[in-house]
Each structure stands twice: as C-alpha cells, then as structure tokens.
C-alpha cells in the first residue's frame, strides 16, 4: 500500500512537469510577455518604455530559459522559467499581475468555495441516490419511465437557467434570501442557502439518471438472484446487496472530484458574488491577469492528480477485490 502511494506520487511528477511546461509554452513562448503587456496596457500606441516598465515590475523582463548574463546557478534560476514555472512546484505562486500575493489569496478564498461545494456535493449525493433507488425500485412501472423523462428534461435545461431562475424566484419575488453577496462566519449561511439549493437542483437530472444506470447494471447480476433465492425481500436485496455494490463506482466517482472542490464553481460563485476561488479565476480572466490563471492551472492539475490517487486508495477501502501493490 505504502509503496503504491509512493510510486503513484513519483508518477505524478512527470505529469505535473508536463502541465508546467505546457502552461509555460502557452503563456511565455507562444505569446511573449510583450504581448501581454500590450494587452494589459490597453491602448494601441503604448510606448516601448511603458511596456518595459510593466514587464520589469512583474518580473517578466528576464530571459526565458537561460540567463547568459548571470553567473553560476543564477544562469538557470534568474529566468522566467524558474521564477514563474519551477517555483510553482514549491507552491510558491508569486504575486499576481496587479501585485497581490496569489498564495495568500488562494488560502483566503478557498473557504467560501468549500462552503458551497461541500454541501452541494453531500446533499446532492444523498438526494440523487434516493431518487435513483426509488426509480429502480419501481422499475417495472411507469414511475421509471416518467422518472427518466423528468431526469432528461432537467438535464437539458442550462445550468444558467437554474441560477437565474433561482435568484429571480427566491430573491426578487419571494424576498427570502439575499440574491448575492457573502459574509464571514455564521452569517454567511443566509448567503449560502440559495447557491446550494440551486447547485443541488441543477445536478439532480444527470446524477439520478447516472446512478439509476449503475443500479440497473447491478440488479441484473447473478448474485442478486442468489440473494432473492435466499428469500430476502426486495428492499433487503436492494439495500444490502445492490446498493452496496453500486456504491463502489458512486463513491470512487465522488472521491475523484473531492480535491477539485477547492477550485469552487466558476459560474455559481460569480453569479452569487461569492469570494471563492471560482470567482477568483473569473475575475482573473476578465482582468486578463495571467499570473493567477497560470497558478490556478497548476493548482488544478495538482488537485486532479491527488484526486486520482485518492480514488485508487478508496477502491481498496470499499472493494475487497482490489489490492494495491
């Protein structure tokens, strides 16, 4: 087990290096820092001096890979690649193009993101599983047919509609909760209710339908027949045998996204003006702050790799057939 984890972590290094090099190419090679400066400074007729100044302030004036003017190790370290890309491996995100400390911003902003993402995941999971179980339980009746139709319909509605509709209904017509905004501490709850409800509802269609397929796949297996042959009642068969087996793909599917919850949801956070990492990214995109986007790409990749590892480990916990070594 331990050797497996270590090996997987070692595997992660080339992957993160790949991500790192890819973003480096995208941000510094395909487009030069000059281009970024020009885009940021806006006007078409910027002076070369202004561009140089902009680059210098942000440390983009260094050579890309090798600094031929520096001495010793500095030849390699006093470069954009080292400063901006290699340092990401030490989780040193540097400062954003507008001069803020990205690492600090991230540590501040991940909590509101989690405050939405975790309840959405948990509530959504339990609701979806319940609905899917109900549908499968009545699989020979019209409930199944109409349940699936309802799921597909809900899936076909754009997520934006749920948000806008939810805001309109709850905020504007009923005046139940604030439409958007955030607060610290417990007073945040009233701001969180609506985004969480909207997030859960938006996921019901797809989730329920997916879990239904998983349950149906299990219910046709031989061991379910053996369980019935024992004389177990249908609900016992469902809960003790089918659910237990179907939970394996469900749980591991959840585990893989767990680390990514930190990243928050772009759309929800921006609609509800919640200062999480999702809206952080959106703001960065809108302000064309490349430093933040780059850091978040790297962070996302790290979290994804962690998610994969956790998934494999969770398999060993829930499925006795899987042993890692």
């Amino acid at each position: 087990m331990m050797t497996y984890i270590i090996r997987r972590l070692l595997y992660a290094i080339p992957i993160l290096m790949g991500v790192n090099i890819l973003t480096f190419m995208l941000f510094f090679v395909i487009n030069s820092p000059d281009d970024m400066a020009r885009l940021n400074l806006g006007a078409k007729h910027v002076t070369p001096e202004a561009i140089e100044k902009w680059k210098e302030e942000r440390g983009y004036d260094k050579p890309l890979l090798i600094n031929s003017q520096a001495e010793g190790l500095d030849r390699l370290t006093d470069t954009i690649f080292y400063e901006k890309s290699v340092k990401l491996f030490m989780f040193d995100f540097g400062s954003s193009d507008s001069g803020r400390d990205i690492g600090h911003d991230i540590s501040q902003r991940m909590w509101p993101s989690l405050a939405i993402a975790i309840p959405v995941l948990m509530v959504g999971l339990s609701i979806n599983i319940t609905f899917a179980l109900l549908i499968v339980f009545f699989r020979t009746t019209y409930i199944d047919l109409w349940g699936v139709v309802l799921c597909v319909t809900m899936m076909s509605i754009s997520g934006l509609f749920y948000i806008i509709g939810g805001q309109y209904l709850a905020g504007k017509l009923l005046h139940l909760v604030p439409i958007s905004g955030y607060d610290t501490g417990f007073s945040a709850i009233k701001f969180l209710i609506l985004p969480v409800i909207v997030g859960v509802i938006g996921g019901i269609g797809g989730g329920t339908r997916w879990y239904r397929t998983l349950f149906l796949e299990e219910i046709n297996k031989d061991y379910v027949r053996s369980a019935r042959a024992k004389g177990l009642s249908e609900s016992m068969v469902m809960f003790r045998h089918v659910l237990q087996n179907a939970m394996i793909p469900i749980l591991t599917g959840v585990v893989v996204v767990l680390p990514l919850l930190f990243m928050g949801s772009l759309i929800t956070e921006s609609f509800f003006s919640i200062p999480g990492l999702g809206s952080y990214v959106i703001d960065a995109i809108n302000m064309q702050d490349f430093a933040i986007v780059r850091s978040m790409v790297f962070l996302g990749a790290v979290l994804y790799v962690v998610g994969l590892l956790l998934t494999d480990i969770s398999y060993t916990l829930v499925d006795p057939r899987v042993r890692l070594d």
């Binding site: 890819l22 973003t23 990243m263 772009l266 064309q288 978040m296 790409v297 996302g300």
Partner: peptide
C-alpha cells in the same frame, strides 16, 4: 489533469 475551464480560459486569453 488541467481543469478544462482553465485550459480554455488560458487558450482563449492567448487567442485574444
């Protein structure tokens, strides 16, 4: 492993 939205954002920014 790169979150899709971020890759798209980065690429579109570069295109801009």
């Amino acid at each position: 492993s790169i979150p899709g939205v971020l890759l798209i954002a980065a690429a579109i920014l570069m295109l801009q």
